[in-house]
Simulated scan of single mutants.
Amino acid sequence: MVKDTKLYTLLGIDPSASEQEIKKAYRKAALKYHPDKPTGDTEKFKEISEAFDILSNEEKREIYDNYGLEAARGNAPAADTGNPFAGAGGGAGGPQFHFGGAPGGGRYSNTDAFNLFSQMGGFGMGDDGFTFSSSGGSPFGGAGGFGGSRGGMPGGFGRQPPRPEPDTVSMPLSVTLEDLYKGTTKKLKITRKNANGTKEQKVIEVNIKPGWKSGTKINFSNEGDYQPECGTRQTIQFVIEEKPNPIFKRDGNDLTLNVTLTFKESLCGFERDVTTLDGRRIPISRTQPIQPGTTSTYPGLGMPISKAPGGRGDLHIVYKVDYPTSLTPAQKAAIQQNF
């Protein structure tokens, strides 16, 4: 007669349930109570996982049926003279034997539950459970189950479905043109989900290299939310987005700078200084008339080329002329007289 039926009740099965019925019951309950599901319940998920861990192991199930849950956990009371796993002399002072690892047995943890779920195929487990090795009555191979320690890697699997690759979650990362010119380090705080369903914050450092462009992708493996079905964390992918610059416009590795001249400067010449992205001042001048839209090119003053260390693009200065919107009669006469 079964001494304790609690674990059978948790899985919704009879004490006479077959191995296949136990597998199906675990699958149904695990998918219902997994914390990532709308119907999730972390504590319930842990309880049904421990129930499956014990009932799917032939030796543990026999101990549970005859002596109860604590005995199956490895906590065999020495004073119980009806328990063959009690002390050698049957008295309170005799030695005790423990099946669950360290003396005291240790309670089944959330981590144990997530590990079991992941090892059993996670959300990809089939309708009829899993294909196990036929070498023993336990889904973990032989009668020893986890080999004396909960949460370890199981042995004796037959055909186990391959784990899916973790998801990649993309996030935009806005960067100024100045930072893309010089390079910089961005420290970003993320919030991610752990294996036990709790959340934590972590700071990720993104090293921006000089010359990177919009669309550049930086991957951080195993840094996102934990995915039980994969047994690892998501990959976080930052995608560079270049912020508009009020002065310079980028075209590949080249930079363009517009310089606006007065009508008088376009005719009589000018002297100016322009400041580059790295703070250098370069002089520009003309002594002769300059046509609107004229472009002057300065090699090597553009953006760094990330794939060619030491290489740089060009700086193009485009001259715009600020024409007057009206002329006085005297100004018109002067133009007609001199042109």
Rank of each mutant, 00 (worst) to 15 (best):
G313C: 15
L173F: 10
I190S: 04
P210C: 11
V169W: 03
A88W: 08
G300W: 01
K182A: 15
F130Q: 14
T262C: 06
S138F: 02
K264R: 08
T198G: 03
K193Q: 03
R150G: 07
G90Q: 08
A51N: 02
P324H: 07
A25Q: 03
K264Y: 08
T168P: 13
A25G: 01
S214A: 15
D167M: 11
F248A: 01
D254Y: 11
K37A: 06
C230N: 00
T216D: 15
K186T: 01
V175A: 00
T262W: 06
I290E: 06
I305A: 09
T275R: 15
L301W: 13
T328R: 07
P35I: 04
T275S: 14
G310Q: 02
K23L: 10
P289T: 07
P84W: 06
I63A: 04
A51Y: 04
S118E: 00
K264D: 11
M125H: 01
L10R: 08
P210K: 11
Y319G: 02
R286M: 11
M153I: 01
F270N: 13
L315G: 09
S214N: 14
N83T: 03
G158I: 01
G89C: 05
R233L: 01
A333T: 12
P283C: 04
K3R: 14
S174V: 08
G121W: 09
Q20Y: 10
A86M: 07
I284M: 10
E47L: 10
D41G: 04
K189N: 14
N83H: 05
S170P: 10
A333D: 13
A143I: 02
G313W: 15
I13P: 06
S56Q: 11
